[in-house]
Simulated assay, not measured.
Amino acid sequence: MKSTSIALFAAALSLTAATAFADPTCTTEPKSAWQDQEVFKQSLLDQGYKIKKFKETDTGCYEIYGWNNQGQKVEIYFNPVNGEAVKTEID
């Protein structure tokens, strides 16, 4: 009994942790409505961002790892339809 309770508690805890660190949902629009990746990346570079990594998430976002125009290390999730930042983390 005791090991079953511990296993259930551990499973619940891992689900809670996974939810807390999940990527945000940026859009549910079809990809045909999204901005072109290369054009979007270039617009960020034109704004002064330095991009180390650019990716498309499973939750409908464009995500970058790099530096903003003030030189701060950032991880930013963007809505690929309108280009708005949905979530920003600055180190």
Rank of each mutant, 00 (worst) to 15 (best):
G48C: 12
E56L: 14
Y49G: 10
K53M: 08
N68E: 01
K53P: 11
F54Y: 13
G66I: 02
T59S: 13
K73S: 00
Y49E: 07
K73I: 05
I64R: 02
E75V: 06
K73Y: 03
N69P: 14
D58Y: 12
G71N: 10
E63K: 14
L44F: 05
T59L: 04
Y65M: 08
K52Q: 12
T59H: 04
G60F: 04
Y62G: 09
G71M: 02
K52D: 13
L45P: 09
W67Y: 14
G48P: 12
T57P: 15
G71S: 07
I76G: 01
G48D: 12
K73F: 02
K73H: 09
Q70K: 15
T59A: 09
Q72E: 09
Q47C: 08
I51E: 05
Q72Y: 02
E75C: 03
G60N: 07
I76L: 05
Q47M: 11
E56V: 05
T59K: 15
I76W: 03
N69M: 01
Y62Q: 08
Y49T: 05
E63H: 10
D58T: 08
L45W: 12
G71T: 03
K55P: 12
G48M: 10
E63N: 07
E75L: 06
E63I: 03
L44T: 03
C61G: 07
T59C: 00
N69I: 00
K73Q: 07
W67S: 07
I64F: 05
Q72H: 08
Q47I: 02
T57V: 07
N68H: 06
W67G: 05
L45T: 15
E56A: 13
L44E: 04
K50P: 06
K52T: 06
E56I: 03
D46Y: 09
Y65T: 08
E75Q: 03
Q72K: 14
D58C: 11
